[in-house]
Each structure stands twice: as C-alpha cells, then as structure tokens.
Design a protein around this nucleic acid. Structure first.
Lengths: 349, 349
DNA sequence: TCCAGAGGCTAATAGGTATTAGCATTTCTG
DNA sequence: CAGAAATGCTAATACCTATTAGCCTCTGGA
C-alpha cells in the first residue's frame, strides 16, 4: 500500500511522539555518558517511540554534524569487473567483510566513480559519507592519494604505498621478507648462483619490495653481482633467451617474479631437456590468480589477501576510534608454499 | 606538515572569494539549466575560485539537501563467510557491482547485523541508510521480509520469494522453464520413463520451482504418475536404493536436483556396471558451486547469478526513480549446459 | 527561610548544500 | 517614454543531527 517514497521519521518526529525535545532524542540515541543526564523513564519512552516508528539516523545529517556513521568506505582504483580482476579483488573484500562484521561496521563500496575510478570527481568525493576508507588497487592514481591525505580524511591503503610528501597508512604484504627467506633457503640448499627475473618493468612497489628481499639474501661482499643477477624481460617471448643466459652463467636456481614467467621458463627448460627442479630450481613470488596454464605446485609465496583485508580494516577502525597524527604502516607475513620446484643443485660432474 | 585536518573550503568561502553569494556558487557548480541564469563572466570567476582553492563539494551536505543518497544497500541473510558460501554469494555481488557502477549508485554492504544477519535489530534497521536495498540469501527470515515490505522501504529480493500477505518484488532464475526444457528434451530423445530426484526436503522455493517445471514437461493424461515419479531422499546414503528403484522401474533418465546427488548416482551406477549416459541419462539442475568431486560435464542448467544481480539492481533503481505501488517480478533465463550425460535410451533388446 | 547542588531537560546553533521567491537592473516594445 | 519582459543575482529556508550553554525544579543542609 506504500504510495511513493514514505518520508522517514526524523528525530523531531520521535521527539514529538515521545513528548520530548529533538536534543533529548539525539542524546538517548547516542548514549553519551556526557554531562547531560536523561532519566531512565524518559529514555525508555524515547526508545519505544524509535522502535515503533522504525527510526534510523540519517547518515548524511549525522556525518554533516560530525558524528560517526559506522561505515567504512572501500574504493578500488580499478573496476572489479574485467573478470580477471575478480580473483585479485575478492579475497581482500572477504577479509574486510569479516573484520567489519566483527567490529560492527558496514562496508560502502564505491563503484560509481564511472569508468575511471577516481576518488575525486568534478572536484568532489563521495568518500566522506563513510567514517574512513580502505583504498585498493594495483595501479592507483598517486596524486589522488596525496590529495586525499591532505584533506585529513582517514584512510588505509591495502598494499604498500609510498607517495611524495607525508607518508600514508597502509597494510602491506611482506614480500621482501618472504623473498629473502625463499632465496636464503636456496643458498642453504647449496645453490651458489641464483638469478632474479621478472617480466615488465620493475617499477611497481611490490616489484621493488621483492627485489629488495632478494638482494638482502645475497651474501655480502663483492661477489654479490656475480652471484645474483637481476633480469628484467620485456615480454614472455624473451624467456628463451633468459634460459640461454642461465645455462651459460652456471645458474642453478631462479627466483621468478610472476607465475607466467615461471611457467614459460618451465616450458622452455623442458623443451631443452632440462628438468625442474633437477637441473634448475624455480621459486615463484606471485600467486596463481589469473590465468595459469599448468598445475605445477610452485615453491614460493602466497599473497595473504584475506589477512591483509582484515588487518587493514582493523587498523582503520583503530585510527577512527583513537585518531593519531602519524601514518601507520603494518606488514602481513606471506605464507611460504613448499611446492616441488626447488631442490639442491646437481653435483658438479 | 599537515597538522590536523585542514578545513575544506565551502561554497561560502568560494562565494566570498568571488564576490558572489553562496547560492550562486551552488548554481554554478550544478550547472542547472534552471530558470536561474548566471552570466558567463560570473560563472568564470566562480569556477576560477573553485579551482584555485581546490573546492570539493561535501557529499553529506549535498545528500542531506538533496534527499537521495545514491546508495543501494545489500543485505545477505547468511554471513558471506564460511568460505563455502563465497561461490554462491560473489557472483551476485559482481553483477550488482557492475550494474550499480553503470547506474551511478554505490553499494552499501550490511555486515554488521552480528552473527544473525537480521534486517531488524532492536526494532530498527540500518538498511534505510540506503535509498533502497537488495536482499539475498538461501534461507531468509520470512517474517523480516514481510515486516520490511510493510514499512514501504523499497527493496528487491534476489531469488524467488513468496511471502504471505502482499507480494514482494524479486528477480528470480527461471528454474521452472529450464527444467521443463531439459525434461522435454529427454522425451524428445525417446525416453519414456523419467524420474525426478532430490536430496533434502523440497520445501525451498527453488526446489518447488524445479519440480513444477518437471511436472509441466510430463505428457498429459493419467500416465503421468507412472511416467515421472518424484523421489525425495533424506541423505546421499539413500542413492543406492534410488538406483535399485530406477532399474526396477525401467527408468532411463533421471533429473537430479543437485550436483551432489548426480555424482553419487554416477558412482553407484558405475559400480553396478552401468554407464552414463549409455544406460542412464542424467540431467542436473544445480550448478557446480561448492564441493564437486568429479569433473563430469553434466547436462543441465547454469544459475545466471551475475545476470540476476545485474537485473535486480536495475529493477531496484527503476523502482527508486519512478515508484510503483505494486511489486514487480522478473525472471532470468537459465542457460542450458549441453554436457555429455544425456543420450537416447538404449533400444529394447 | 535561604542557598547550594544535583538532576533533568530544552533552546539555540552549527554544519554545507540545493532550491525558490523575489528584488534590482537593463533591454525591448509599442 | 511608459510599461513589459528579460537578465542576473541574493536572501531565506529546508534538510537532520550533535553539541553545549543554560534554565527550571527538587532535595538537603544551615
């Protein structure tokens, strides 16, 4: 029988109904242990009226007036759509969902920025409907992040972000640590010459972190360059050349940044009659989201996306409830996958 | 250097700067072709001031003044968590996300209802933070749906829902139609005795719809009962007995409600030396979300979850923008999966 | 009897925007 | 040149909540 949008009851309506003032309704609603006291009788009358009329605070008014909404915004810099992104995106969301539920917050997914997924649009942002925000994306617009930081709006980036000017809060996977451990394990097994390889430029933060971990695992001294070369390929087509270099250089183990690279390497190696891990150990630093063509159980790391989502949410809520002037950074350990693509090097014949 | 949140410039600030009134700033900002005109000179002055000071409209104030929030609420009656639900839940969400993005709405995920996932809590609901809501869940609380309907709050259920009293709007998969087509196809292939089987009680709406489709495909007349028996098993353990009945009754094709049932049936049949589809054709009415143990390409239907999410979102937005007194119901066709588990019956020897 | 103090509540205001009635000025029309 | 119409803008108000200063009443003590 509902004809047209029914106007939602406001605090003023409830106040009229309960025979009190709007201010009293607000005070009851927010249960502040402020200096203002409300008698239990009145409180109960107000609560009853709220229940009866299904009163719900207006989020916009509330946030305009400076109150909390118990809403966490989630902004992704890429559309979730192209289905390839789904595997990347959803585990984070899952973790956020779980943490938000525990903490009593709802999640506001910003989808409406249009194709470009900007935080600011026509100079305005809907983000501020939420109490704070989680930002997410492999290829964020750095200027927008800086601009948002400068507004003082609380947010946490999911993933390692360094921007110019003041730092921002983030929760990142500890790629460096995991890579270091994996690489050290190769040396422990007896490998002496270990290479690092990636496809694409190594400019992205996760890429830099991984390389840093690799370098940290290198033995000290001047042998370092010889011991652990880093190759950056432009495309998967270059893998054949990489393999030639590997054989030439007496390299017995490769740390591959991406699954795609590792798979290509495996294919080339097998074509050359080499076995993995018999002739060549391979460690992979990416996880298997996206297209993977083989079921090879790679030795490497897993990206703890769910845990990152959870932890970012917890961090944000901490920041919301007790604001801090400085940015906070947290690392989440990457679980190591044992896999079957690493073995001791073949003994010199 | 940002010490504390810098106050963002408001329209009043811009107005002062450009030597106009706040109203003018608002008018310039919104470029309404209203009856109010602004001279190009003034417009330019205002725009310049906005640019210079990095003016950003306050979303809360804007929606407070405007009424609509451009937010669609999403309520799930089960937690997304137990990871088994993820496959069920996310495709819907994906469709909603896409549609919401197209339509310029954001998605508010209600997670905070605590363990019980109730719409109403203490008699009030956070749902109305949003302009309207999408409800979702295999096992919803029917009373809550009725109550929500009676508040006049606009919502669309994703899935077929019938509740007592007035009807509610929903977008459902056309299980009945797809089941009917699949069953008719069996008869066309020459099967004469076709059974329907399920595990668990058939009380849920999707179950009833499927059975209805099955019955519709039956040839008319009194032969109907004999032609198409319906079995309801209590547990997978009963499948062996079911198979015995099938062989006894000369049944050559089975319409199985769940993948689990079909897989069990296949296992039993093979144990008995029967082949599928040689000796027994099997159609499956569930899709493969959740644990499936074999890779059998079942002949059956797919649940168009993404499309349902998309369509529900579109329907809701239509309802929001031009309110209608009556509930709307829409069906989404289930794609049919050809699969390899259906064949003509073996010729009588 | 007067005063102090506490208890219980309200009036008033801020917060930033959108909208509309209406005012002042200029230009057009006959 | 008077009156009408168009132009360009502003003042005022509504939207709904949170917060604070302050008012009124009642109790207990001196």
């Amino acid at each position: 029988m509902s004809r047209g949008p029914v106007r939602r009851p406001t605090q003023a309506d409830i106040a009229r109904l309960a025979g009190v003032s709007q201010a009293t309704v607000s005070l009851v609603l927010n249960e502040r242990d402020s200096d203002v006291r409300i008698s239990p009788t009145t409180r109960e009358r107000v609560l009853a009226a709220m229940r009866e009329w299904g009163y719900v605070a207006n989020a916009s008014a509330r946030s305009l007036a400076g109150g909390q909404n118990k809403i966490i915004g989630v902004h992704t810099f890429e559309p979730v759509f192209p289905t390839t992104s789904v595997d990347f995106y959803f585990p984070f969301l899952l973790g956020m969902e779980q943490a938000a539920a525990e903490l009593g917050y709802d999640l506001l997914l910003f989808t409406s920025a249009g194709g470009e997924r900007q935080v600011f649009r026509d100079g305005s942002t809907r983000l501020s409907l939420a109490d704070g925000a989680l930002l997410l994306g492999r290829d964020p617009n750095v200027e927008e992040i800086e601009r948002l930081r400068d507004t003082g709006f609380p947010f946490v980036y999911v993933g390692h972000r360094e921007v110019s000017g003041a730092p921002v809060s983030y929760v990142a996977a500890d790629y460096a640590g995991a890579t270091q451990q994996l690489t050290e394990r190769l040396f422990e097994l007896g490998h002496r010459r270990v290479a690092y390889a990636r496809i694409g430029d190594g400019d992205a933060q996760p890429s830099r972190d991984r390389e840093k971990g690799f370098r940290r695992a290198m033995p000290a001294g001047e042998a370092r360059r010889l011991t652990g070369p880093v190759w950056t390929l432009e495309s998967p087509d270059d893998v054949a050349g990489l393999l030639a270099e590997i054989r030439h250089g007496g390299i017995t183990a490769v740390v591959a940044e991406q699954v795609l690279l590792a798979e290509e390497l495996l294919a080339c190696a097998q074509r050359d009659g080499m076995s993995v891990p018999g002739d060549l150990s391979v460690v992979v630093l990416g996880d298997s989201t996206g297209a993977r063509r083989t079921d090879t159980p790679w030795t490497g790391l897993a990206v703890p996306r769910e845990e990152m989502g959870r932890q970012a949410t917890h961090l944000l809520v901490r920041l919301l409830e007790t604001p801090e002037p400085d940015a906070r950074r947290e690392n989440v350990e990457c679980p190591l996958m044992p896999g079957t693509t690493v073995a001791p090097p073949r003994r010199e014949q």
